[in-house]
């Protein structure tokens, strides 16, 4: 079984938000909402500064609190590569999943259901990369099977130092950031 995940090279990312725009047009994400976004994490004092730029989205956790807390089963883990999805007409809009996500990746779609990144499952099913990955002008994003040791993502993780977001929350996020 595949385990889909993303590897993002923070060294190359310039935070241009092309990934965000591509997600918007690909998935018709409504105005004023974002399924992915850019974080600039700055440490230090001028002029000795360090900045990590990251593109963030649902981490499609292996231990997904949003799926556990969902009272109707709307939030679920898809058979294909462990992608975490929401079935719109099962969702009652209780927002427990929004509260349960340490990454604050979810929002309420204007139509009332909880929404978030789907890893572009409709593209992945056709063997394509998610829209954000496919447009990135800096080629800083990689999508693939983390369980396959020969995949590009796995190789990047063994060859480069990397970190995930808030590992201490115990959700086992599947997006990893190369530093």
């Amino acid at each position: 079984m595949a385990r889909f995940g993303m590897v993002i090279d923070t060294k190359k990312c310039v935070g241009c938000m092309d990934c965000v725009v591509a997600c918007k047009t690909e998935n018709d994400v409504p105005e004023a909402f974002n399924r992915d976004w850019i974080v600039q994490d700055v440490r230090g004092k001028n002029p000795d500064l360090h900045m990590e730029i990251r593109t963030e989205r649902c981490n499609h956790c292996d231990n997904p609190p949003c799926v556990y807390c969902c009272p109707t089963g709307a939030s679920h883990v898809h058979d294909l590569g462990g992608i975490v999805l929401v079935t719109h007409d099962l969702c009652i809009g209780c927002k427990a999943c929004l509260a349960s996500c340490p990454y604050d990746t979810r929002f309420i779609h204007p139509e009332g259901y909880a929404d978030k990144c789907t890893f572009c499952v409709h593209r992945v099913e056709k063997g394509l990369d998610p829209a954000c990955v496919s447009v990135c002008p800096t080629h800083c994003m990689y999508f693939g099977d983390l369980d396959d040791p020969n995949s590009q993502v796995s190789k990047l993780l063994t060859s480069r130092k990397n970190h995930s977001l808030i590992p201490e929350a115990g959700t086992k996020p599947q997006i990893l950031y190369l530093v």
Binding site: C16, V21, C136
Partner: peptide
Amino acid sequence: SKGRLCPRGTGGV
């Protein structure tokens, strides 16, 4: 572009 637009191009819609 080598097949990849910038965010403005992607947002050209």
